[in-house]
């Protein structure tokens, strides 16, 4: 059981925790408007996991549970494939929500515009699924590597 680093490092990590997570969620949620998307956003949130592991040790891993992370990873990938299959009436990865006026399906103004969150149909939902999958996969890799028993 790793106890982590000194109290100074723990306090700085606790302060940096919330901005990192919020920035990662922002990058995921605005993936269809600004640069970024599911992959970089999930990686940014997974950086938070690595920071927690190195500064606080492994005492909190049991509370999260590797099984839950593994389930989140599978859920993200299954959600991505399921969203892709839902448009199979026309083709795989058919963006059937765009322009329908439903959830995330509002019509966009063409040309340069300030951008609105409720546009682009399936793309924000796929961004969220991929972000969940990438976050859970990289967190699982880091936690498994950090808690592994290695004989020197």
């Amino acid at each position: 059981m790793n106890k982590g680093l000194s109290p100074i490092v723990k306090n700085v990590a606790a302060v940096a925790l919330v901005p990192i997570t919020v920035f990662g969620l922002y990058v995921i949620a605005h993936g269809h408007l600004t640069p970024g998307g599911g992959f970089p956003g999930g990686a940014i949130i997974a950086t938070m996991t690595a920071l927690l592991l190195i500064s606080f040790g492994t005492s909190w891993v049991k509370a999260i549970g590797k099984e839950r992370l593994s389930m989140a990873e599978s859920l993200g990938l299954v959600g991505f494939v399921g969203l892709a299959i839902m448009g199979i009436g026309k083709s795989f990865f058919n963006n059937f929500l765009v322009g329908q006026g439903l959830f995330f399906g509002n019509a966009v103004a063409f040309g340069p515009n300030p951008g609105w969150l409720g546009t682009a149909g399936l793309i924000p939902l796929m961004n969220m699924a991929v972000g969940l999958e990438v976050f859970a996969a990289i967190s699982l890799i880091a936690i498994t590597m950090f808690t592994a028993e290695v004989s020197k």
Binding site: G31, G76, F92, F93, F110, G115, A120, I123, E133
Partner: peptide
């Protein structure tokens, strides 16, 4: 016009070339 996404890169990655992204996510899995 076709995808409603302001970010053309996101439109290509998740719509036109979605299969690439799917296999990339599978590689991470």
């Amino acid at each position: 016009e076709e995808t409603g996404s302001n970010n053309i890169v996101a439109a290509i990655v998740f719509d036109y070339r979605g299969m690439d992204t799917l296999v990339e996510a599978s590689v991470l899995f």
